[in-house]
Design a binder for these strands. Sequence first.
DNA 1: AGTTGTGTTGAAGA
DNA 2: ATCTTCAACACAAC
Length: 282
Amino acid sequence: MPELPEVQTIVSDLQNITNDIFTGFWSDWEKVIRDENKKNITLKKFVKKLVGKKIVSVRRLGKNIALDLNNKTSLLIHLRMTGRLLVSDQSSITKNQKKYGKHVHHIFFLKKNHALVFHDVRKFATIDFIPTNNLLEKLQTGTDPFSKNFSLIEFKKIINSKQNKTIKEVLMDSGLILGIGNIYASEILFAARVLPERIIKSLTNLEQGLIFKSIKKILTKAIRLRGTSISDYRDSAGKKGSFQNELMVYKRNKQKCKKCDTIIQRSVIAQRSSFFCINCQK
DNA sequence: AGTTGTGTTGAAGA
DNA sequence: ATCTTCAACACAAC
């Protein structure tokens, strides 16, 4: 679930740990810890590089969380599907403890906040240790919807580079636009009154403008409501967001449309579930 | 009880 | 090169 609004919420929460210092690290799934060339780093090496370093800033880069350290390196964390980063003030979490919670796979120990606990059911999340200067070149090349560059003209240029793709695929292509996943793609297209299967070249100028506006509107609202907690997503205090209460179509197939009572349908586009109202969207 | 679907993304295969 | 498929893993729902 962590798409842009969820990652943004966590990054905002993690401003609390800026200026804190790493005192240790534990992991039982070290294969996801890598260097800038995506090569695995041994736990020993990683700990040695990390301990004593101060967190100088926490940033969102697409769906990634960057923790910048005071030695010109950064931890680039991607939560993938089920990752959670929990700031713990429990002194009960100690380095000597043998067993943590069932799905806790990494723990960063901190001087002031005790610990940053990394919970990940499916173990897909990644931790990359990268020189801060090389961070941007290691990332997806798409434009962030909240960057200054993301104008209507730029948006049109981006989507029209994929004339024969469906609008839903293009919205979710992180090489083009950053941060939109399966949930928000469906919600944005409902707000824009455009069906997800529509091919780019079939979209009118008006529809492209509506989709552009809906991207900002839906993502902004979702950030305000601290994200969508359907299954795994939690903020850094372990609390749920509340955008799941505002979903118009996502996972609402066979239910009535909140606007017109038509039954919401599900279809598969590029191997991903898509949800839409055949009456509200054209 | 076995099968299917799940938020992501990059690596492998065509 | 560029496109599609699949693997990484655990679990819930059917």
